[in-house]
């Protein structure tokens, strides 16, 4: 088997704030093989977006990072500034959420797509960059002449496509999609996801897909990792995890999506009660125990480690 595109080894990220240290990621290890795809799901504040930023070392100065991030075999946190810039966008690129301000409002989109190619010299001339921008735009379903448009002249779905085209500019091995469809309406969301899936097949791209929408991940990712309070609580092949969750938290997430045609699930949507814990003040023991329907007294004492819960599956719960 070839070398994995992305390896996280015991990644920990702690934000230093005026109110003290806030651990956002507390020891996450995962692997994505070349061309593989992993879906990372969890509620807001579970640390999933922090992981996206940590891979390209984009976190603010207040974030303390420990552990290792190996991107295309390079230890991102050992690289010198020049080496780091060289890996960014060529080894791993990020598809940001387009509804927010991920595009520079005063630059034409064509220039923004061409910029990384010229910086990393993946094209030799500005003219070649222009040709490639046209190809990229066409490949995401936007007419090439729109390269001269400014971001505000595009719809939300088009902006998201532009961000995908931009991420593909330097033919990266890994695409990190951080909630790429959150602000889009359902039809556009489906188009964007289909597009991502197509491009992935054509280019043999590895994908790290981050979202809070578990149902999307099962369709578009080979494997699934569920995060809770800065740790992975369950991991495995996506179909298996969604169909037969081992961890009570995954069960709660999966049950929050009503099954079409199933009356009982529609009449009684069973979500999770309560709110995700404050990362600055996690409960003792298993951080999920205050919301867990199956909690036992010993859950308050020690935080369970990930252990084998089935073929290629792991979960962090004393009940598995």
């Amino acid at each position: 088997m070839s070398e994995p595109v992305l390896v996280l080894e015991d990644l920990r990220v702690t934000y230093r704030t005026s109110g003290g240290a806030v651990p956002a990621v507390r020891g996450v290890s995962l692997e994505i093989p070349a061309g593989g795809s992993l879906g990372l799901a969890g509620e807001s504040g579970c640390g999933k977006s922090t992981i996206a930023g940590a891979v390209l070392r984009l976190l603010p100065g207040t974030a303390e990072v420990s552990g290792r991030v190996l991107l295309a075999g390079k230890d991102v946190y050992e690289l010198k500034p020049g080496g780091l810039r060289a890996v960014r966008w060529t080894a791993g690129a990020i598809v940001f959420q387009g509804a927010l301000h991920a595009l520079n409002p005063v630059q034409r989109i064509g220039d923004q797509i061409a910029e990384p190619m010229l910086v990393h010299q993946t094209v030799s001339t500005p003219k070649a960059a222009k040709t490639r921008v046209a190809e990229l735009l066409e490949s995401v379903g936007i007419p090439a002449r729109r390269a001269a448009a400014y971001p505000h002249q595009l719809s939300g779905g088009q902006r998201q496509r532009v961000l995908i085209a931009m991420a593909l500019a330097c033919d990266p091995q890994l695409l990190i999609a951080d909630e790429p469809t959150t602000a889009l309406d359902v039809m556009v969301q489906a188009q964007v996801l289909e597009l991502l899936a197509d491009l992935r097949r054509q280019r043999d791209l590895a994908l790290l897909f981050i979202t809070h929408d578990l149902s999307l991940l099962t369709t578009y990712c080979d494997r699934l990792a569920i995060m809770y309070a800065g740790r992975i609580v369950e991991e495995g092949p996506s179909g298996d995890v969604f169909a037969g969750p081992s961890h009570p938290y995954t069960r709660g997430l999966a049950a929050a999506f009503p099954r079409i045609g199933d009356r009982s699930s529609r009449m009684a949507p069973s979500g999770l009660g309560g709110d995700p814990p404050d990362p600055a003040a996690l409960p003792a023991g298993c951080p999920f125990h205050p919301r867990c329907p199956l909690a036992r007294p010993e859950c308050r004492e020690a935080e369970p480690a990930l252990r084998i819960s089935g073929p290629e599956r792991r979960a962090a719960c004393i009940l598995v």
Binding site: W89, F96, N104, Q107, E115, V119
Partner: peptide
């Protein structure tokens, strides 16, 4: 703004991020 994170993620130098992306805005 997010587009500055994007600019850094693209592998641009700090100065380029400042002069081409931050200052025009």
């Amino acid at each position: 703004e997010d587009y500055l994170t994007v600019a850094r993620a693209k592998g641009l130098r700090d100065k380029v991020v400042r002069n081409h992306h931050a200052l025009p805005n």
